[in-house]
């Protein structure tokens, strides 16, 4: 497929995934702050930190208002100047969808465009002010609809796998980032002591953000920072765990590599393998405590670098020309004529 189109597919799903994550984060926080033991200041600020938006928010609105839930929500959802706001991410997702309209299904397009229209036409905003719970509920459903239609209405060929790759890598990164922020917020817990009620509330909120609460308890686990971190990073069967996402991302990467008979994506594959090996050898011992932050940073950076490498391996517009130049005799290779 056309490299640019592949890149648009990849980003379409990265933006959708990011938007879903932002929405989930805010929605859960709304109910968390209702519990008195959690300081609203720290919890709203954590959202800004997790989305990497704290500095620009403070620059815009001042440091003293980071606890102002209304303002933070407005900034993270509606602010068009904020490139990481939900409305901007949906706009970008929609723009990517529009530019690959001939590649995605009609159903997918209608779902993405419908979501965008709802958010930008004023209807969404009115709902947000009038009935926030319903607003988040609908947002979640519409995002899930796009995801379901991605799996259910297009060929599971190259375009699909670039989309899936974007979705899974974004999700792995988001899980790691959310965990890191929580860990940073609470600090390393004293292994001798159990978690405090505040800590417990935070870990529960994190699980809910990642819709992993029920799964966590189904595994018979006891709530603690260490157990949550272990679960979110290593649990093979949890759809949002870092490991789960990386294993499936590797499948999709292998699939798209086949089209060039493995010529393209060699480096990407090696980097992904490296990240997975790290998870495998790391069976829990280093996963909590002082080293957790380093581990998560390693993962977050590693995933970001991997996304860059995928770009260089598959999307870079100068690649094809280089390949032609390298081909013997100056004649272009007759790939796929």
């Amino acid at each position: 497929m056309i490299s640019r189109v592949a890149e648009n597919c990849f980003w379409l799903q990265r933006y959708m995934e990011r938007a879903a994550c932002t929405a989930g984060m805010i929605e859960v926080n709304l109910s968390t702050v209702l519990d008195m033991q959690v300081s609203p200041k720290e919890s709203w600020r954590a959202l800004l930190v997790a989305s990497g938006e704290e500095p620009s928010f403070v620059e815009r609105h001042g440091a003293e208002v980071v606890a102002d839930g209304e303002l933070v929500q407005d900034y993270l959802i509606w602010d068009r100047q904020n490139s990481a706001s939900l409305v901007q991410m949906i706009t970008m997702a929609r723009e990517n969808a529009r530019s690959v309209r001939e590649t995605i299904s009609l159903e997918m397009w209608l779902a993405v465009n419908g979501l965008w229209l709802w958010l930008t036409s004023g209807k969404g905003r009115r709902g947000f002010h009038k009935e926030p719970a319903e607003f988040y509920d609908r947002l979640r459903r519409e995002v899930e609809l796009v995801r379901a239609l991605t799996y259910g209405t297009i060929l599971h060929d190259e375009a699909f796998h670039f989309m899936r790759l974007g979705m899974l890598l974004e999700r792995a990164g988001q899980t790691a980032r959310l965990l890191d922020v929580k860990h940073h917020l609470l600090g390393p817990s004293d292994p001798g002591q159990g978690d405090s009620p505040v800590e417990v509330a935070h870990w529960l909120a994190l699980l809910r953000t990642l819709t992993a609460t029920e799964s966590f308890f189904k595994r018979g686990l006891t709530l603690s920072g260490a157990a949550v971190a272990h679960f979110l990073i290593l649990e093979r069967d949890l759809p949002r765990s870092v490991r789960h996402c990386l294993v499936r991302a590797a499948d999709s990467l292998a699939y798209v590599r086949e089209f060039s008979d493995g010529k393209r994506g060699r480096r990407s594959a090696a980097m992904l393998e490296h990240l997975r090996t790290r998870l495998r050898t790391d069976s829990g011992s280093r996963v909590f405590g002082a080293e957790l932050h380093d581990e998560l940073t390693f993962m977050i950076d590693g995933i970001a670098n991997l996304c860059e490498q995928i770009r260089a391996d598959f999307f870079d517009p100068t690649l094809a020309e280089q390949e032609v130049d390298r081909a013997a005799g100056g004649r272009a290779p007759g790939v796929g004529q």
Partner: peptide, 9 residues
């Protein structure tokens, strides 16, 4: 040629 993920076509 068009630049594709598998090379020029």
């Amino acid at each position: 040629w068009v630049k594709t993920t598998r090379g020029p076509v």
